[in-house]
């Protein structure tokens, strides 16, 4: 997990981005924080030093004035018959993917498998970053 935080943190420093904007509901979800994806990831991003906002919240003045202070965080669920596969990406103001991490979980229960997949994704994120 140290690697993950380091990975996310270094990106923040390098690009001078201070804020991350997360979606309230990602494409594979039907309600806010389904499977606890949003709150878990928000926590991890905050641990890495970012200030996190959801896409229905107003950004602070500093972020509005300089869009390059904001990264967008996306989460996608891949196809799999036997596992929950998630990909986390951070996208900068130039629409470049500056961070990507894949993780999967073989836990059966959906309510647990998503957080497990996120944990696995962020554990090895330093190796996968673009």
């Amino acid at each position: 997990m140290l690697f993950a935080c380091l990975g996310l943190g270094m990106q923040a420093q390098g690009l001078n981005a201070k804020y991350v904007q997360m979606k309230k509901v990602y494409n594979f979800q039907e309600e806010f924080n389904e499977y606890r994806v949003n709150s878990f990831l928000k926590h991890k991003l905050e641990e890495a030093g970012y200030t996190v906002f959801y896409d229905d919240q107003e950004l602070p003045q500093e972020a509005k004035a300089d869009p390059c202070k904001v990264l967008k965080c996306n989460v996608e669920r891949g196809k799999s018959m036997t596992a929950t596969k998630l990909t986390v990406t951070l996208i900068n103001c130039k629409n470049e993917q500056i961070f990507t991490a894949n993780g999967e979980s073989r836990v059966k229960l959906r309510s647990k498998s998503h957080v497990d997949a996120l944990k696995n994704a962020l554990e090895y994120s330093a190796l996968n970053k673009k």
Binding site: F28, E30, R77, S80, T82, R110
Partner: peptide, 14 residues
């Protein structure tokens, strides 16, 4: 199998 059912359920939303 249940794995297949979960897969279909996920795919349906997507």
């Amino acid at each position: 199998s249940d794995d297949h059912i979960y897969y279909i359920a996920d795919e349906f939303i997507g």
